[in-house]
């Protein structure tokens, strides 16, 4: 949080959600954080059904922001809207704004390719391509026109190192990515996302299909990566949110089954002094 403030700094997210920060210093600290993604009044519709309704939140740069909430509350939908993966669902459309580095990615005529280059994604189940480890990581850079072997070698090595996988695979880069263990596959997917040099990484329950040790590695990785990337994760696991996230957003469905943002703020406050009754009930395990 050293010199991250820039002109994109906006009033802290909690102000908009109506919450009051617990301490003055906390408020002052967050004030200085630059906003990476500013979500304003975002609603996503699947046909006529509104999956998420009027979500407004600002995601700070170089922090881990967790989205939690009960099943079916639209966590994944909200996450997928951040790199326009929602476009892939037939009949889906969005209202509102998602402003990434000052540019509205939902605006008319916006090309999704550069957005998805800047906002990478890691999925719930590890999904390496049925290619070699090397080709998995090199897939993205090749897409953007990197052809030179030396250059690709460098990117592959750097990405695998960042994903803490290099030492385990450096001698078998030509082996299939499918032959790795589940946890290694997930880190390979992270390396693949990092290879195109995004500035935001979205993770949709990245550890839910993994065993506890592999989960721990992924969580460590999130902490390491946040110095260079803005991380947004969706998780079912509240302990995970408490462990890794700097900020936490709690979503819940309203009477029309549309997901709404109930509360958003620093993780420590969401878990210890939630403003809303629903949040408290959820984080203390009374429902969901």
């Amino acid at each position: 949080m050293l010199t991250l403030a820039n002109d994109l700094s906006r009033p802290l997210p909690m102000v908009r959600t109506g919450a009051v920060p617990a301490k003055e210093e906390e408020a002052a600290e967050i004030q200085t954080l630059p906003v990476k993604i500013d979500i304003r009044g975002l609603s996503i519709f699947y046909g006529k059904f509104r999956a998420i309704a009027e979500v407004t939140m600002a995601i700070p740069a170089h922090q881990v922001t967790a989205i939690i909430g009960p099943s079916g509350c639209g966590k994944s939908t909200l996450l997928r809207a951040l790199n326009r993966m929602t476009d892939l669902t037939p009949g889906a459309h969005a209202e509102g704004d998602v402003i990434l580095d000052g540019e509205n990615i939902l605006g008319p005529g916006v090309d999704v390719v550069p957005i998805r280059q800047r906002v990478g994604m890691v999925f719930q189940r590890p999904n390496p391509f049925p290619k070699s480890i090397y080709d998995n990581v090199a897939y993205g850079p090749r897409l953007y026109g990197v052809r030179k072997r030396v250059e690709l070698d460098g990117i592959v090595e750097r990405s695998l190192k960042q994903a803490a996988l290099w030492d385990e695979v450096k001698d078998k880069l030509q082996q299939s990515g499918m032959a790795l263990s589940g946890g290694q596959q997930q880190r390979l997917c992270i390396a693949r996302a990092l290879a195109v040099e995004p500035s935001v990484i979205l993770m949709d329950e990245p550890a839910s299909a993994l065993d506890p040790i592999a989960t721990l590695k992924i969580e460590d990785l999130m902490q390491q990566l946040k110095s260079e990337y803005t991380m947004v994760i969706v998780t079912h696991n509240m302990q995970q949110a408490a462990r890794v996230a700097d900020y936490t957003a709690f979503l819940m469905i309203d009477g029309e089954r549309a997901g709404r943002l109930i509360e958003y703020g620093p993780t420590s406050r969401i878990f210890t002094k939630p403003e809303k009754k629903e949040t408290e009930d959820y984080v203390t395990g009374r429902f969901g």
Binding site: N83, V113, R116, N127
Partner: peptide, 27 residues
């Protein structure tokens, strides 16, 4: 072919035709 493979490629910014040609077809 698992839809997740296609998604992974599209999420990297690959256009649909490249995804079909380089990921779905080989798979």
């Amino acid at each position: 072919v698992p839809p997740s493979l296609r998604e992974a490629s599209l999420a990297l910014g690959a256009p649909e035709w490249k995804t079909s040609l380089q990921v779905v077809l080989p798979a």
